[in-house]
């Protein structure tokens, strides 16, 4: 079976943005990973205490899986074909057929069943994304490009089938995706402000108190209420927060650095130098998130006394800084108000 021609693997900071930017680049449009995140308005904050995985609440620094896949269709004026399957054999046969046609195919997989992942990363996280670009005729291995790894990898068919058809929260159901139409260069001066406005709306003006800066404040309240008398449970909770923020595929600091890189790129594409200034502010906020991670880790390792209250205050500080930041960002992309006579 031939491999997809002219495909080059490049390492990225996050799986879905890495996969989508690679697909767009492969189809002839120069496109960076931060641009995939920013243009699809996928950076956000969500704290959903009623969705639990292994007893811990869902905390996310980005929109739900597939947001980047779907969100890029409108600005880049193309369409992504997505397919899911009931039976694994159907899903694997379809993948073979698409690879035979020479297509680059995106796949949603569970990290746990991927043999090439470091053992300590193999948890039941179902919303990982990677690219398939060929198959080795000699032993049937699939040739995969996992954007969070440095090099392309190989995966035996049985393991890949298991990973694509894992069940549980956010089950992939064998999801595969590829462009049905070629992406086109957007009108940056319209597409970028529109995407930024969507992000600021998500961060500042959602009706639900779990999303955006209100979600960060709500998380602060729940951290403050953690029992000091039960250090084991408290440490597990704050460790979970840091994992969601810093672990593989978040670009560090919960996507804040990557979004800052998007703003820098946006500044030159839209000729709005104010965005460069705002990018610098967001990098500072990202560093503050890393301070939160550092303080949490020190408490987990008993290098500092376990004080949920201090962590809650750090989160409150972050909530108010992000509130001010996104308000300023919102202002900067709006048209100047006409002066009243």
């Amino acid at each position: 079976m031939p491999t997809v021609a002219h495909f080059t693997h490049s390492q990225a900071s996050h799986c879905e943005s890495g996969v989508m930017s690679a697909i767009v680049r492969h189809n002839g449009l120069p496109f960076s990973e931060p641009m995939a995140l920013g243009l699809s308005s996928a950076m956000t904050f969500a704290f959903l205490p009623f969705i639990k995985h292994a007893g811990l609440p869902l905390v996310s620094f980005r929109m739900p899986p597939r947001a980047i896949i779907r969100g890029l269709q409108k600005p880049l004026r193309f369409s992504m074909r997505t397919e899911t399957f009931r039976r694994p054999q159907d899903g694997m046969a379809r993948l073979d057929k698409l690879l035979n046609e020479g297509r680059l195919v995106g796949l949603q997989v569970s990290v746990f069943w991927l043999p090439f992942m470091p053992p300590d990363f193999r948890f039941h996280f179902n919303a990982h994304n990677l690219l398939a670009f060929g198959r080795d005729d000699a032993n049937g291995d699939y040739l995969l490009s996992d954007p969070v790894l440095e090099e392309p990898v190989r995966c035996p068919p049985d393991d890949l089938a298991h990973a694509r058809f894992a069940r549980g929260l956010l089950a992939p159901k064998g999801l595969l995706y590829y462009p049905a139409k070629m992406p086109q260069e957007p009108d940056w001066k319209r597409a970028i402000p529109a995407a930024i406005k969507k992000t600021t709306r998500n961060m500042l003006r959602t009706p639900l108190p779990f999303i955006g800066v209100r979600g960060i404040a709500r998380l602060a309240r729940s951290v403050e209420r953690l029992p000091v008398g039960n250090p084991q449970a408290t440490k597990l909770y704050i460790g979970h927060l840091v994992r969601m923020q810093e672990e593989i595929g978040t670009g560090g600091a919960g996507f804040r650095f990557m979004y800052a890189a998007f703003l820098e790129e946006a500044a030159s594409l839209t000729a709005r130098p104010a965005l460069t200034e705002l990018a610098a502010q967001l990098v500072d906020i990202g560093d503050e998130w890393r301070n939160f991670a550092l303080a949490s880790a020190n408490m987990i390792r008993d290098r500092e006394p376990l004080e949920p209250m201090r962590l809650a205050n750090l989160l409150r500080g972050l909530a108010s800084r992000e509130k001010a930041f996104f308000a300023a960002l919102d202002q900067s992309v709006r048209k100047p108000q006409p002066r009243l006579p």
Binding site: Q11, A12, S13, E33, P34, D120, F121, F123, E150, K235, L236, G239, H240, V242, R243, E246, E247, G252, F257, A260, A261, E264, A279, V283, R290, A293, L294, S296, A297, I300, R301
Partner: peptide, 20 residues
């Protein structure tokens, strides 16, 4: 300007991963 930099790991990440 911001650019992609490779990281060989942070003790904080190691702590929370090993915890899990």
């Amino acid at each position: 300007r911001l650019r992609l930099v490779q990281s060989h790991g942070w003790a904080v990440e190691e702590t929370v991963t090993l915890q899990a």
